[in-house]
Design a binder for these strands. Structure first.
Lengths: 138, 138
DNA sequence: CTGTTCCTACTACACGTGTCGGAGAGAGCC
DNA sequence: GGCTCTCTCCGACACGTGTAGTAGGAACAG
């Protein structure tokens, strides 16, 4: 079994680009203006053209698609947030722990990253995991 | 509630730089040549001077220190691997899940990242977590 | 029509990062 | 004493990414 040697490049996103995607995930398909507004609302002050550039680049990379609808182009993410999250996590785990996920969780536990409620949920989830047996794959 | 908007810069490391650090963590303090060899052994073919540049930059950033010992400088990491891991994880969690760690674990669970043994260990760790109470913080 | 507004298309530019090459100084070998 | 090997020091360069200005067309207000 080859598994993955290096988490294969993953989705190449800069952090500004990522934030754009986030906006699209949260607001759904939007024109430049709306994405900009969204960002401004979260305290991220960038210029209109900056957002546009980012959106364009994202589109070139295939992470976003656009349709001319009326006055302006409407952009939408072509990747699900989950997919990107998954990829990112995998990449991190691979980089930090050579692919072993458990140490990551251990680390989180040790650094007190969970609230009591979360701990309870986790217990439950893990218990279920133990019994349930869906062999879903990537 | 301000929380943290952006996980504060963290340790700024490029992936090539990170690999250098990794080498130092794994082999302990080493001169350029040894780091290079280490990298070559893992199939990473870079030039001697590349490694040197990286080491130098790392030193400028304060992540590495060096001492002239005999012929060549010996470099050593000034950050623990754990510290960097922690920072990286925090940064990821902040970016992907607005700081909530539990969803990350959920994601790992859903994508079948754990072996049975790991699940068992996790159960145990989390159970302990529930009772033990060290309020350690970052 | 005409001025204002809004959008897109280009172009630009500074930085960080990955990658090296060449010049020069010591250490050793013959 | 030179030749060679190995370091270190600098300088360089291509790319990716973040950020934005400007030009020019389209739409809309009067």
């Amino acid at each position: 079994m080859l598994e993955y040697i290096m988490a294969k490049r993953e989705y190449e996103l800069g952090s500004a680009e990522f934030q754009i995607l986030k906006a699209l995930w949260e607001k759904g398909p939007s024109p430049v203006r709306d994405v900009l507004t969204h960002l401004h609302e979260r305290g991220r002050n960038v210029a209109y053209t900056t957002v546009q550039t980012l959106l364009t680049r994202l589109e070139q990379k295939g992470f976003v698609a656009s349709d001319k609808s009326g006055l302006a182009y409407v952009f939408r993410a072509t990747l699900s947030r989950d997919r990107v999250r998954k990829s990112r996590i995998k990449s991190l785990v691979s980089q930090l722990y050579d692919g072993a996920a458990a140490p990551l969780v251990l680390q989180l536990i040790r650094s007190g990253s969970f609230s009591e409620d979360e701990i309870k949920s986790l217990q439950q989830m893990i218990d279920e995991l133990d019994t349930s047996d869906d062999g879903s794959k990537s």
